[in-house]
């Protein structure tokens, strides 16, 4: 009975009593959810176009942020550094496709997956070798990202909105809108969707798979860079960030590996869900720190009962 009250009654009483706390938690969950979404989006892009589960996506986030900070530290102005970092990501995409994807095409999936683990280690070692392994501060103000916060009075309390969080939400939304436009309105975008559907048929109409792969790896790199900047702006640029990237896995299970809207909604659900659960159920019942595993439990439940995820692409099959 005691437990029943703890699970089903008290959390909602607290929510009703302190609406500002609820809103604050929702907002924070939303912001971290956006970042999960961005990381998951990188996975989905590559998975859709090449069927490769890119284990290196997490480290690409760190590598991109590290490159940006590292180039800036060499005395390059911030926006030039940003452009150079994009160049590095394009180069990375080209190298991965030429050296890994192309020689291994038509090999079993597991071999391509293993090769992305290899890429992970190369990026970790390479990043440390070139830029050093110690945590660095993101060049937030230099890039013109806002700092400070605004308060909003609600029901006797206040909700604090960090400006960087608002900026993160806006930038992520712009990036996603940009990608959606690119996919639906451009010739290359249409070719990308074609490759995702049937790469044999795409080859037969003269679409170059190699070119498409470079495009998606670069797009995943841009998404990784964005996620890296926004995430590191709240903490630091360090290799510990890649652990956060592992949270993208439950997001993918939830949203479906092939669905871009799924990655976004999945990220938000996980982000908001883990913050709410931790505050209202985790702390009173389990003594807190549920955030690190909550997402994985959700993923497990999904794997058991709905393995294609919320938005996983339905197989269209004619009988």
């Amino acid at each position: 009975m005691e437990l029943f009250k703890l699970i089903f009654i008290e959390p909602f009483e607290v929510m009703a009593a302190l609406p500002d706390l609820l809103l604050q938690t929702l907002w924070e969950g939303f912001v971290s959810g956006i970042l999960y979404s961005l990381i998951a989006l990188g996975f989905v892009l590559i998975f859709k176009a090449s069927g490769v589960f890119n284990f290196a996506q997490g480290i690409m986030v760190v590598f991109a942020a590290l490159t940006l900070v590292g180039i800036h530290a060499m005395g390059v102005p911030p926006f030039l550094a940003l452009i150079l970092t994009l160049g590095v990501m394009a180069l990375l995409a080209l190298t991965v496709v030429k050296l890994v994807m192309k020689p291994l095409v038509n090999q079993p999936d597991i071999i391509l997956f293993m090769s992305t683990i290899g890429i992970t280690f190369i990026l970790i070692a390479g990043g440390q070798l070139i830029f050093g392994g110690e945590p660095k501060a993101m060049i937030t103000t230099e890039l013109g990202l806002p700092t400070g916060s605004s308060d909003w009075e609600v029901g006797g309390g206040i909700v604090i909105f960090q400006h960087i969080d608002i900026a993160a939400a806006v930038i992520a939304a712009l990036l996603i809108a940009g990608l959606a436009l690119f996919f639906n309105k451009t010739k290359t975008g249409r070719a990308l969707r074609a490759v995702a559907d049937d790469h044999q048929a795409a080859l037969s109409v003269g679409i170059s798979l190699e070119y498409i792969w470079v495009v998606v790896w670069f797009a995943a790199g841009v998404v990784a860079l964005t996620a890296g900047i926004l995430w590191a702006a709240k903490s630091d640029v360090s290799f510990a960030l890649q652990v956060v990237a592992l949270k993208a896995l439950p997001v993918l299970v939830l949203g479906g590996f092939t669905s871009i809207p799924g990655a976004i909604v999945g990220g938000l659900i996980i982000g908001i869900g883990e913050k709410l659960f931790d505050l209202y159920w985790g702390v009173p019942i389990l003594g807190g720190s549920t955030e690190s595993w909550f997402a994985f439990i959700i993923a497990l439940l999904f794997l058991l009962y709905r393995p294609e995820g919320l938005f996983g692409e339905k197989h269209i099959e004619r009988i």
Binding site: A191, D198, V205, I316
Partner: peptide, 18 residues
């Protein structure tokens, strides 16, 4: 081997890719 998730028109347009 049509692209199942693309509209018919998008399918046709992929033919003009080159």
């Amino acid at each position: 081997h049509c692209f199942g998730h693309l509209s018919i028109e998008d399918n046709l347009m992929t033919g003009a890719y080159t």
